[in-house]
Lab assay of single mutants.
Amino acid sequence: EQIEAIAKFDYMGRSPRELSFKKGASLLLYHRASEDWWEGRHNGVDGLIPHQYIVVQD
Score class of each variant (00 low, 15 high):
E1C: 06
Q2L: 13
I6E: 15
I6F: 12
A7C: 03
A7L: 00
A7G: 11
K8V: 12
F9E: 15
F9R: 11
F9G: 11
D10W: 03
D10Y: 03
Y11C: 06
Y11R: 05
M12E: 14
M12Q: 12
M12W: 14
M12K: 05
G13Q: 12
G13Y: 04
G13L: 03
G13T: 04
R14M: 09
R14V: 15
R14N: 13
R14L: 07
S15G: 13
S15C: 14
P16E: 15
P16R: 11
P16F: 07
R17L: 11
E18A: 05
L19G: 01
L19A: 04
S20K: 04
F21T: 01
F21Q: 01
F21L: 03
K22H: 12
K22V: 14
K22S: 09
K23G: 09
K23I: 07
K23R: 09
G24K: 07
A25R: 05
A25D: 07
L27H: 00
L27A: 01
L28P: 03
L28H: 12
L28S: 12
L28V: 11
L28R: 10
L29R: 01
L29W: 01
L29V: 09
L29M: 05
H31K: 06
H31P: 01
R32D: 01
R32A: 05
R32G: 02
A33Y: 08
A33V: 07
A33T: 10
A33P: 08
A33F: 13
A33M: 08
S34D: 11
S34W: 04
S34Q: 06
S34I: 02
E35R: 05
D36I: 10
W37L: 08
W37M: 15
W37K: 05
W37S: 06
W38R: 01
W38M: 00
W38K: 01
E39W: 09
E39S: 09
E39P: 00
G40V: 00
G40A: 06
G40H: 01
R41K: 06
R41F: 05
H42D: 03
H42T: 06
H42M: 12
H42L: 08
H42P: 00
H42G: 12
H42K: 05
N43M: 09
N43S: 13
G44C: 09
V45Q: 13
V45T: 15
V45C: 03
D46E: 05
D46G: 05
G47E: 00
L48V: 12
L48Y: 07
L48R: 13
I49K: 00
I49M: 03
I49P: 01
I49R: 01
P50C: 07
P50K: 14
P50M: 08
P50E: 02
P50V: 01
P50S: 06
P50R: 09
P50Q: 07
H51C: 13
H51Q: 14
H51K: 11
H51Y: 05
Q52N: 14
Q52C: 07
Q52T: 12
Q52I: 10
Y53Q: 15
I54A: 08
I54Y: 03
I54D: 02
I54L: 12
V55F: 13
V55Y: 15
V55A: 11
V56R: 09
V56H: 04
Q57M: 13
Q57T: 09
D58S: 15
D58W: 04
D58I: 03
D58F: 15
D58G: 09
